[in-house]
Structure formats: structure tokens, C-alpha cells
Amino acid sequence: MTARLSFAALLLAALAGPAFAAECPALLLGELPKLRAKESIDLCQRFAGKPLLIVNTASYCGFAPQFKGLESLYKEYQAQGLEVLGVPSNDFRQEDADSEKTAEVCYVNYGVTFTMTEPQVVTGDQAIPLFKDLAEQSGPPRWNFYKYVVDRQGKVVASFSSRTKPDNDKLREALEQAISSQP
């Protein structure tokens, strides 16, 4: 019965079009492989219409302890719709080549429960489309743990350097602005 209701709700959403379901912004077109999983993350399906904090991460970076603060932000604002997306990258040569070790750092060492992808290229010509779009809107990440706050329409509200800790007041203000944005 529940599966039928879910299917019916999806069918109604598809028939009603954008007035019922959030449209997918260009920023979220595509899929990324999920860390320590066989499935991929359909960015539109998972994040469209939601406020989002996107962070490029690296296991061996001196900023890796920020995982704890990012997890705290996620838990604090999750009920208000906030999603956090961690995208490990070796662009700055501080990520392990073995994604199992990356997963261990995230999930075991820091207790991350927000969405994490397999390591990706986030800078330059080879950057994944998500980070190309972020760079066009706000500039490329200059180091690991660069933070992008994205509103419900897929627009970057603010970006923050690696040195900006997750408990920073300006970061929190940007998150609250993204949360209060209309889908």
C-alpha cells in the first residue's frame, strides 16, 4: 500500500509539473558516485528545492577536523531542510587514493552522516560539472574545505574559505538565508 501511494504521489507530481515539484537547477544536473556504496547520487532527485552546503574535502588536510563542525551544522539545520554534500578531492594532493580510507576518515574518525561522494576533480578544466557551475557562480575552491552555500533555486548565496570554521557567524547567516529562500 505504501509503495502504491508513493508511486501515485510521484505520478501526480510528474503530471502537475513544476508547480507541484521543484524544478532542477542546472547546478544539480547529473549524478555522482556515493562514497562506500555501489549506487550513485542523482543530484536533482536528492537536492532539488533544498538549501545546500557543498564542501570539497580531503582526508589528510589540516582542516579535516572541520568534519565535526560540518556534521554539527547538518544535525542542527537538517530539520529545516538543509543538506550537506561532501566531495572529497585530491586536487590539492591531500586525499587518499583508496576511497575506503577516505570513507574511514569520514564515517569512523569523524562520524559523518551527511552525503559524501567518491573523490572527484573540483578544479580546472577537468572539474566535474557541479564544481564548474559553482566556480562560474562564485569562483573555484582555492583549497580543501572550501564551502559553498546554495539556496533552494540552485544559486550560490555565499562561499567561504577553508579557514572559515563551520561555527562561523557569517556562514550560519548564509545558511539561514538559504534555508529561508523559497523553492
Rank of each mutant, 00 (worst) to 15 (best):
L171E: 08
R46Y: 09
K34S: 10
A97E: 14
Q120H: 03
R4N: 10
Y77I: 10
Q120M: 09
T115D: 15
G69H: 03
C24N: 12
D98P: 00
F114I: 05
T115M: 15
E23G: 15
E83K: 13
A22P: 12
C106Y: 04
P166V: 03
A8S: 10
E118S: 09
Y110G: 02
C61Y: 06
I179D: 06
G86A: 12
P65I: 00
A14M: 12
T57H: 05
P166R: 03
Y146M: 09
G154N: 08
V87N: 02
E95W: 02
K132V: 03
D133N: 10
V157Q: 09
A21E: 11
S181R: 02
P51L: 07
P51Y: 11
K101A: 11
P140G: 14
L171G: 06
L28P: 07
T164E: 05
E83P: 09
A103N: 03
A97I: 08
Q120G: 01
F7W: 13
V84Q: 07
Q153D: 13
K101S: 07
E176K: 13
A158K: 11
A37T: 01
Q182A: 13
E136P: 00
S40K: 15
N168W: 05
A135V: 05
N109F: 12
A3Q: 12
F20E: 08
A48T: 11
L27M: 01
N90F: 00
D96S: 15
S138F: 04
G139Q: 03
T113L: 00
P25S: 05
E176Q: 15
K68L: 15
C24A: 06
F92R: 10
P33L: 03
A174Q: 01
K38A: 12
A9N: 09
Q45L: 13
N90P: 01
S89E: 00
Y107T: 11
Q120A: 12
S181I: 00
K38H: 12
F47G: 09
D91F: 03
V87R: 05
V55Y: 03
V55T: 00
V105P: 01
A158T: 09
E95R: 01
L35Y: 02
V108K: 14
L35H: 06
L134K: 04
L134F: 01
G111F: 10
L53A: 06
P18F: 04
A64V: 08
A13V: 08
R46L: 11
R163Q: 13
T115A: 15
Y146F: 14
L85S: 04
F160C: 00
G86I: 09
F20I: 15
S59L: 00
S99P: 12
L43P: 02
Y148D: 07
A97V: 07
A16Q: 10
E76C: 07
A37M: 07
L53R: 06
D167K: 08
D151K: 06
K155N: 14
P140K: 13
D96L: 11
V87M: 01
L15I: 13
